[in-house]
């Protein structure tokens, strides 16, 4: 059983994001990149499958500033192999990543591809779902748990449906899954374990042939125009609380 986790680094949304001089792209000069939070869940689910079924886990991410750290951390968490997808240039779109993987992954061989359900920069679609479309493989997105059959031919997955419902689906492998949440929160590994992984492992490279893909023409990237804007209350916590509760009293929400 070979599980491939496809991740990507995205801008840390805790930081301020600025638009570049062209007005159509992100100013990447001081950008801090982190592994997409849903990819962290995909990795966790893969490591859980390894622990339960002895699956081999390969984690793969396009090259980017900070990708080495992210991959060594994945190895420290339990991945067996880590690979950088090279040859796509800076900040490839989801579509470019998916198209490149569609041609590169089959040679790697896999039973299951796990990706984060979505990423903050997925302007042109989600990597996992695009990849499934390209490969013509069965797919399920918005997954919150994966169980494997003992013989490794099928997976049972929990998928979110509308209105807080979940469904259980059965998928024959190979398949592509978009993970919303792992069965348990992504584990934490201390820096010492990551350092150890750096000594024990070497990152591999997977060369991607840039494949022509439909491109979106971005006319403008900008901060959203707020439809409304909060009226801000200032002062000490006590002063703010007094103002706010007065508003609630006025509206009959505190009686």
């Amino acid at each position: 059983m070979h599980v491939v986790v496809v991740g990507k680094l995205v801008p840390d949304l805790v930081e301020d994001l600025e638009v570049d001089a062209s007005g159509r792209g992100l100013d990447r000069q001081f950008l801090k990149l982190v592994l997409n939070e849903f990819d962290e869940h995909a990795l966790e689910e893969a490591v859980l499958l390894k622990e339960a079924h002895g699956a081999r886990v390969t984690v793969l991410a396009p090259e980017a500033e900070g990708v080495d750290d992210a991959l060594y951390t994945a190895l420290a968490k339990g991945a067996d192999r880590a690979m950088k997808l090279v040859g796509l240039g800076e900040a490839p779109s989801s579509r470019q990543i998916a198209a490149a993987l569609a041609s590169a992954l089959p040679s790697l061989g896999f039973d299951l591809v796990l990706t984060g359900v979505q990423a903050a920069d997925d302007l042109d679609g989600q990597v996992g779902m695009l990849l499934a479309g390209y490969l013509g493989l069965p797919h399920v997105g918005v997954v919150t748990g994966v169980e494997l059959d003992p013989d490794g031919s099928r997976a049972r997955v929990r998928k979110e449906y509308p209105g807080g419902w979940l469904a259980e689906l059965e998928v024959q492998l190979p398949a592509v899954l978009g993970i919303q949440a792992a069965k348990q929160p992504p584990r934490y590994v201390p820096v010492s374990r990551v350092r150890q992984a750096m000594k024990e492992h070497t990152l591999e490279e997977l060369s991607a042939e840039p494949v022509p893909v439909p491109r979106l023409s971005v006319r403008r990237l900008s901060k959203p125009e707020a439809a409304g804007r909060a009226e801000f209350l200032d002062g000490s916590p006590q002063e703010v609380a007094a103002q706010l509760v007065s508003i609630l009293v006025e509206r009959g929400l505190v009686r």
Partner: peptide
């Protein structure tokens, strides 16, 4: 979300 991107990939058209 399980339809939009795979459909676009299969048709060779862009997805937003």
């Amino acid at each position: 979300m399980d339809l939009a991107a795979p459909l676009a990939a299969r048709l060779g058209v862009p997805c937003v």
